[in-house]
Amino acid sequence: MRAFFSKILYVILIRPWLKLIIGVRYRNKKIVNDTPQYILVANHNSHFDTLSIMAAIRYSQFKKTHAVAVEDYFGKTSLSAAAVRFFFNAILIGRSSKESKKDPIQQMSKALDKGQSLILYPEGTRGQPGVMQDFKRGVAVLLKDHPNVPFIPVFLEGFGKVLPKSKTLILPMNCTVRFGKPVFPKSTEIEDILGEVKTAILALQKRDERYTNDFENI
C-alpha cells in the first residue's frame, strides 16, 4: 500500500519535475526492470541520487527495492525517518563503525533472502562532487554471501551540482543516471569484489563524453 501511493507520487509529480525542470536523463534504464533481483551500487553526491534512481524503476520492481540509509542521520527525527521510508522504502541501518544494537549487514542480508533488492552507496556518505571516496566493505560482504544476486553499477553524473552536501538550494542542472549491465562478481575475496564494483562504476563514467563541468571549489 505504501509503495502504491509512493509510486503514484513519483509518476505524477516527482518524475515530471526531475525530467522537465531539474534536467535528469536516464541511460539504459531497461536494465533495472529486466533484472529480477539486484544490488544497485552507485556513486553518491546528493540527496537527489536516490530520488532519481527510484523514479526510474517500474512498479513491480519498485515495491521490493529498498534504499539503505543510516539511522543516526535519517532517523534523527521521526519525520525524516517516515519520509525516507515512504519515498525510498528505506532500510535504516546502524553505522558499522559505531556501537549499535542491530548488525547492519544482517539487516540487509535478511532483505536479500526475502528476494528484495537494495540500493547501496559503497562510499558510505555524500562526498565532494566528482571525487570518488574509498568504498566500505559491506557491499562486498553481501555479494559474497549471496552469489545468486548480481550488482548493477550506476554512475550518477552532475547530481553534486543540483544539490551538493550541506546546501539547501536546488539548482536545475543537466545530470545523467547511467545504468550498467548486471554483474555477478567473479572473485570470492572481499577486497577483489570491492575492486570489481569500483571498476564497473568507473567504466560507466568513461564510456560517454562528459557534458558537465564540476563546480570549482570556491
Binding site: G23, P172, M173, E216, N217
Partner: peptide
C-alpha cells in the same frame, strides 16, 4: 540550463 551545465562556475555562484 544547458549553458549552466557545460560552463565552468564556482560553487558560490
Amino acid at each position: 540550463r544547458e549553458m549552466f551545465s557545460i560552463g565552468i562556475f564556482r560553487s558560490s555562484d
